[in-house]
Design a protein around this nucleic acid. Sequence first.
DNA 1: ACCACCACGTTGTCCCTACG
DNA 2: CGTAGGGACAACGTGGTGGT
Length: 314
Amino acid sequence: GPYDQIVLEANGFKIKNYFWDTMVAQHVMQPEMPKTLAYITSVNTREPYYKDEVKSDEDTKSWTQKWWSISENREKVWRYNCKDTGCTFENFLIQEEELSNGPSGWTPTFQFKMSEIPVGVRISQAGMLRDEKKHRELKGALLYIWADFQSALNNLVGRTVNTNSSKQMCILLYDELGLKEKRKRDKNGKWVRTADENALVSLVGECKAQYDNRIQKAVKEKWLKALVVCKLTMKIRGVRKVLSSYVDIEISDDGRARGLVKITGAETGRWSMSKYYDNTGIPMQTVPRDPVELEDESVLDNIEGLLELEGALK
DNA sequence: ACCACCACGTTGTCCCTACG
DNA sequence: CGTAGGGACAACGTGGTGGT
């Protein structure tokens, strides 16, 4: 499939063509069910589960020369690979039968999906060339903005606040500032208080209304403070998100940021994306569109200084 | 070190309200 | 009365926090 092709071609093998992908076939016939080889093998064949055979007693991270030099280990991996290829072929035979006997839409959909593979592979392998000068400037600008907002927030609250900690934020907003608790259901259906984006947006609205309706200066200021805390928190979270997900990332040695296109990633037929197979790059679908703007661009004259802010903030 | 949970980046659909 | 716009939620993937 596409994933294997990308890994193989990255290691010097050229894939000429292939006509069947068990994942694509499963995706077309049973889009809501798992598409892993382990699952379809369990459904289609009588082969006992074998996927843990190479991992059971050896940590996969220890696939070192030392580990590999033990013939027993090599034997295990070879046997595993043989089962993998054998099962894949067995799955193919069963899927081919199923596909041709299924609804009339299956075959053309399968063919269409297969034709998407080279497109997805091409996009994955191309990636995006990163402009290193711009990258430095962007990082400097984001760190500057973060530091600016963070110091304002810290001064307002009187201590350092980690806006990414929902625990800290709930204590600040509800216990210390006395705002009306925003709640949501957790996974088990239990109501818990939250300081997520929705909560902050509605708190901003409430604080604004209170501020506008109050007369006493001291009371007005209290609401203004709460309002600013919420707004700063949203801004800081946004900046940190952009930094951690899109700027502070590892990219390929050739200066390109790549992402893996998964044409069978979503039940609905949409494509999904992830980081590249080697865990570099970004899922290119979610790159923020919003521009990063500085009021005073001259702060970029000292990027070195800005980059040093990183240590103080983290 | 691992895991559950929280949070947030994208597009798209549906529903409702406000507005011209 | 048609439409613009917002909220809620659907579809995804990943990073950070804090407890075990």
